[in-house]
Design a protein around this nucleic acid. Sequence first.
DNA 1: ATGGCCTCGGTTCGAGGA
Length: 254
Amino acid sequence: MKLVTWNVNSLKVRLPQVLDWLQTNPVDVLCLQETKLTDDKFPVSEIEAAGYQVVFSGQKTYNGVAILSRHPITDVVKNNPLFEDEQQRLLTVTIAGMRIVCAYIPNGQSVDSDKYTYKLRWLDALSQWLEAELKQHPQLALLGDYNIAPADADVHDPALWEGQVLCSDAERAAFQRLCALPLADAFRLFPQAEKLFSWWDYRQMAFRRNRGMRIDHILLSPPLAARCTACEIDKLPRKWEQPSDHTPVIATLD
DNA sequence: ATGGCCTCGGTTCGAGGA
């Protein structure tokens, strides 16, 4: 069983790449963020033709999440019932006995921004929602673009980013509150090479210089963490023409 | 050098991303 998260930065632009990637990576569940499509424009037939069921929650221009699955999808919940939000950032479903949560956590822009306050409130409400969900669904996975680098090891230049958005103490504390639910960072269940990232800025040749951050994560509840045998970042799509600035993160479960 | 790039909407620039 393979669970994947990928911020595609516009599914309209990236659909061919998603379908190409699935051809060589026939995964079970693929969570997408930043689809940037209203629901009436979602490419349902193309995805179904590739052998996947799909649910989605989108809006014009910004945000938008989707879950693709090779197995039946049931019990769909859009957004967080505990948090009034016009932005489409959260989608929860059941697949193969697992509660799958796809999240596009707010970016926050900068620590002195209203968007940062919104990010922290959003994260607080997410923790509350997941705490309740975990009671009913012990097998739960939270996949998405967290817009948080959990530790300095997840940042190309920790000194440059110290205290900045994505790395601030409050954001990292919110990440740790998710981990305390408890949920385990699948990537850190295994020995990993240094300087492995999931996002690189489009500017300054950041990818070629590996000036990136690990901000896309898969968190697993204890029963799923116990089944997890690997967690990898696939850098290949970042090398393609017209790439997303994020790459897929893949968790393998027995 | 307080920017560099990409996407969208809607026009040829501003907002947002991270």
